[in-house]
């Protein structure tokens, strides 16, 4: 199809998050706020009104003291491919093509100026990855000074979500063009803000289809799984955990069913 410009290299960016490493410190969240001009209000405790592109959840294994275990699970937008390539749950429902599956990168785009705020995509997203701008964004005092020109501040009434820091990809690409090596972008040249911020190196980011990238190997690990994989959303974000209960907590199972990981463990 005409989807990919002739001069563009095709990639499929994705993330692998090692849940055994994640400490739940929220550096990724804060780095994301700062990187992506995410607005805040004085009241942020009602999480379903709060804008987060990546959010760290706390999972417990449900066992009583002292056999309790905790696992932290950072959840960005999963950049789903959907049932067939590009048929992401949110993309197919957007009536105005404000969100689209970016074929050259495998990232789900979101164009705030096209979005008119119908929120159908939010209804379609099982991960609650999409957030609506219920209020006009306001930065108190002269905090507007720290806003980055790489990411447009959103206006009231539109949906926003994690973009895998697409502007960093653009930045890397611009640099590559400037240096006369178009489309040749090294693995370390494009990393998301959260990946870079994670103080315990729990997040790995790269081209899932490129055997030279770290994520390629990690996503094929036997400890790898994805969130709500059974919905056929086909996320580009993988998780790693050696703990069986974490695998179970990441998807829904009927009583007699088991995650593939547990079956493997028992075998």
């Amino acid at each position: 199809m005409e989807k990919i410009p002739s001069h563009t290299k095709k990639r499929h960016f994705g993330m692998v998050i090692d849940l055994d490493k994640c400490t739940g410190c929220a550096s990724c969240m804060v780095a994301c706020y700062s990187e992506n001009n995410i607005s805040f209000r004085d009241e942020e405790s009602v999480k379903m009104l709060s804008t987060n592109w990546i959010q760290v959840f706390k999972l417990t294994n449900g066992k009583p003291f002292p056999d309790t275990e905790v696992c932290y699970l950072p959840k960005p937008c999963m950049q789903c491919d959907g049932k067939h390539f590009g048929h992401s749950p949110c993309v197919s429902v957007c009536p105005a093509v404000a969100t689209d599956f970016d074929y050259p990168t495998g990232i789900v785009s979101q164009i705030y100026t096209r979005c008119f705020g119908c929120r159908y995509c939010m209804a379609a997203c099982p991960y609650h990855a999409r957030k609506f701008n219920w209020w006009d964004p306001v930065w108190p005092a002269d905090m507007e000074k720290y806003l980055s020109p790489d990411v447009s501040p959103r206006m009231r009434g539109v949906v926003e979500k994690c973009t895998f820091c697409y502007h960093r990809f653009q930045r890397a690409r611009q640099q590559a063009y400037n240096e006369g090596r178009p489309e040749d972008i090294r693995e370390d040249e494009y990393q998301t803000a959260c990946t870079q911020a994670c103080p315990s190196n729990a997040i790995t980011f790269g081209d899932l289809d490129n055997p030279d990238h770290a994520v390629y190997k990690l996503k094929n690990s036997r400890y790898a799984f994805r969130l709500l994989e059974r919905l056929n959303t086909n996320p580009s974000v993988y998780y790693l955990s050696t703990r069986e209960w974490v695998h179970r907590a990441a998807d829904n199972y009927l009583e007699h069913e088991q995650p593939a990981f547990s079956e493997e463990q028992q075998a």
């Binding site: 197919s92 429902v93 957007c94 009536p95 105005a96 093509v97 404000a98 096209r114 979005c115 008119f116 705020g117 119908c118 929120r119 159908y120 609506f132 701008n133 206006m155 009231r156 009434g157 539109v158 949906v159």
Partner: peptide, 17 residues
């Protein structure tokens, strides 16, 4: 959320939605 852009649904229609 953006009534003044409501007409995008017609003009920029995504026929799959």
């Amino acid at each position: 959320g953006q009534p003044l852009r409501g007409w995008f649904i017609f003009w920029h229609a995504n026929v799959h939605s």
